[in-house]
Design a protein around this nucleic acid. Sequence first.
RNA 1: GGAGAGCUGGCCGAGCUGGUCGAAGGCGCCUGACUCGAAAUCAGGUGUACCGGCAACGGUACCGUGGGUUCGAAUCCCACGCUCUCCGCCA
Length: 435
Amino acid sequence: MLDLRSVIQDFDGVERRLSRRGEGAVATLRPVREMAIRRRELNVALEGMKKRQSEANARVGQLMRTDKAAGEAARAEARAIGDEVKGAEEELRRVEAAIEKVLLVVPNLPHDSVPDGKDEKDNVVVRTWGEKPRLDFAPKPHWELGESLGILEWPQASKISGARFTISKGAGARLERALASFFIDTHLSRGYREVLPPYLVTAETMTGTGQLPKFEEDLFRTQGETPLYLIPTAEVPVTNMHRDEILDPADLPIRYCAWTPCFRAEAGAAGKDTRGLIRQHQFHKVELVKFSRPEESMAELERMVDDAQEVLRRLGLHHRVVELCAGDMGFSAAKTYDLEVWLPGQEAFREISSCSNCEDFQARRIRVRTRGEGGKPRLVHTLNGSGVAVGRTVVAILEQCQQADGSVVIPEALRPYMGGLERIVPEKFPRGVER
RNA sequence: GGAGAGCUGGCCGAGCUGGUCGAAGGCGCCUGACUCGAAAUCAGGUGUACCGGCAACGGUACCGUGGGUUCGAAUCCCACGCUCUCCGCCA
């Protein structure tokens, strides 16, 4: 959420910065100007009224003890003021609710360093790590590899859950589990604290990080009087952990890493990436979340990108870092880097991580503060990034590490987590692996 | 799921026969005095948000949340949430 005060003080400036995200973003803000002016007028008037009211009330109290008749008269007067106050309060509440409603769907302002642009075609490649693996055969897409190896299975998944689900089996299932452990261990050694949060959260929590009210259709929701939502990313529960808290500046930055399943309805994405593991209703992700002092948040973002890159480097996966343009960034982000991993089977770089600095946009919604000079409370900055998406890493390993014979060589760093397994070869054991 | 108790300032804790209560007292913290210095002691200060003001300062709101009663509510009434204890159930 943008700061109402700075919106009022510099409406044109805010509008100009917002316009870099596109016309749609600006349109969300327009109604605020008038409403804010109205709110201010009402508030000033109301405070004057309240002052008169409390004076009148004090008179009633005093007079009632001495002069009953005069007391009754004062009481009538006080009652009239009270009615006035009630009316003004109601009006003010209405205006404030209207402002809040608008402000909740206005996206964050892009940081000045963010490149201009409309969509993903305008994103800027910052650096590339490694090289395309030299394959002297026609590389297969991961879904073919997964099926022929017997480690990824779709017909059974759609039988039990419908479209966009996968069942991993044998070495495939183990690979997911190994990657998650490997990622977490790597981040722990680099200063993050592991947390295992709830996967179901309240609407308030979803609102805090910006998923609600604007993106309800992307979420799965439970039944019942007070529904809960399945988390689309661990960013949601972990960032909300410190809601309504004032964090000790000495503790900052706080760095968390969390491994969770993620659930996404993504109703609008029908027809894209229908095959394979790329776009699923459920997947695993290791998420990095930071709470930072404002002046350090951009440096922390750079470190976070490096932390995410580190796991790909250790796995030897060819990838690049992309800086998102203003038009392609997510709702809450002030600045975002994506990590894109090379997929030979599709001859394309695909997103495997997204690291964002939300600055104070989420912190304002959820009231996470720290103390600055003189002990004054001030908002922290929040950051989040994938470190990294587990399912998509499986895709990358299958496609980048595939061999001419259809087997897949497991990256060395991962082998300790795979019981020493060096290579995935076809598995066809419905009752388990024969020993 | 059932029964009971409770939710007050950074913490503990009074107030809850409705009025001047942002709220006693204690702890913690800050400043000053005393001291070579420290401890102890004494004196003073010590919440957040918003509005007005260059500032000093003034005003308004906040006693779990929301609603009600009333001229006026931390105090009375209703609903909800959360915490704790006991019982039941359970991986």
